[in-house]
Design a protein around this nucleic acid. Sequence first.
DNA 1: TCTGCTACCACTTTTGAATCGT
DNA 2: AACGATTCAAAAGTGGTAGCAG
Length: 431
Amino acid sequence: MYHPRELCPSLGTGYRLGPPQPVTEPSFPPALAEGYRYPDLDTPKLDCFLSGIEAAPRTLAAPPPLPPLPPALGAEPSPPAPEALHSLPGVSLSLENQELWKEFNSVGTEMIITKAGRRMFPACRVSVTGLDPEARYLFLLDVVPVDGARYRWQGRRWEPSGKAEPRLPDRVYIHPDSPATGAHWMRQPVSFHRVKLTNSTLDPHGHLILHSMHKYQPRVHLVRAAQLCSQHWGGVASFRFPETMFISVTAYQNPRITQLKIAANPFAKGFRENGRNCKRWALFIPSFIQQMFINSPLCAHNAPGGPCDSTLGGDVREPDPEQAPAPREAAPALAPLCGGSSAEAYLLHPAAFHGAPSHLPTRNPSFPQAPDSGRPAPYSAAFLELQPGPGSSGCPAAAPPAPFASHFLQGGPLPLPYPGAYLDMGSKPMY
DNA sequence: TCTGCTACCACTTTTGAATCGT
DNA sequence: AACGATTCAAAAGTGGTAGCAG
């Protein structure tokens, strides 16, 4: 997990993250600021990272209404949140591996959580546009509960089975390239494949802590700031993608998810047709589907392009032995996001699951310092409800979507949407 | 008895240091 | 001496499974 200590050595260890103080903003009514607090937030631990980010001297022109309370279990889900105020005008984010996420989502994505921490697969890989090439930004990711229910696998589908466990302290993963210039972030897709999920509430490694058998959704946050602990910030935008919702588990419940993971994740190659556990593969998946996977770029074995670097890496990283050998750090080929879905779509658009064009330069962690322009920005955060792109899954959904607690996801116009966020400083540096 | 969690396994990929050639 | 390519071993990541606890 990422270690901001290296970026902010002066901070020492053990500092926590928290939202900035809107109350300190002279033109921001304290009562209004209070209203923007997260409803499920008790006593946020605020300091350093985000509290050091100063509010811009302007306030919101028209603060949005407070998000509704979560509907009762079984109620009709709330309509998708409209696009909120965006304090980074013109900035947009797209999910690079959207088709892969859709494929998993059509079955009901499950993410393994372990005491030691488990990576997400698929990983969140996004492309960003509209940034100021000279300004510096932080890229962050967190995972928030979707609703207030605990879930249970009922043989064929996930069903609510009671009230959710008390919410755990929020943690946020900071992309190791942060802070970087807008040009850097826009040069290639940004991958969060190193994010690890754990069910250990005492986790000392800074992994994102989740409850098992709960439904979660990742969020990506973009913060304009010169430094990780910058005293000035120039805006915030947050994004979420409906297809990235998942249920955390300690062991896979749905065998279809297991087979999708085995088919798509290079690390699970040992469980494919030649692996020691190939019997299950053959048992669960009819031969024509096996062939579909084997021939499909969803199957990493057939994925073109070479391994990805830390920014590009993520879902399908296995080099194709049929292709010319590429340098280890060569960037894979960028592909258009394809319409349609399922293995057929992957066959039609095989490159859709890879990152940047190979001609693009690889990640350079030590790019030159670019001073933050320091331009003022509205004191707001944005939460964008990104609707799925063209194409829909051909697979039936495993279970109907659970009611959404929109306030969990939309947050409010606080500069940063992770109240009580905890930045663990004791984990092992990745870079 | 059932459900959920943990530790361990064999396998694969990734990573980085060492080595070699230009 | 510097740089890039290659090699190789260790580390890390994967799902399966047996066993344990509640």
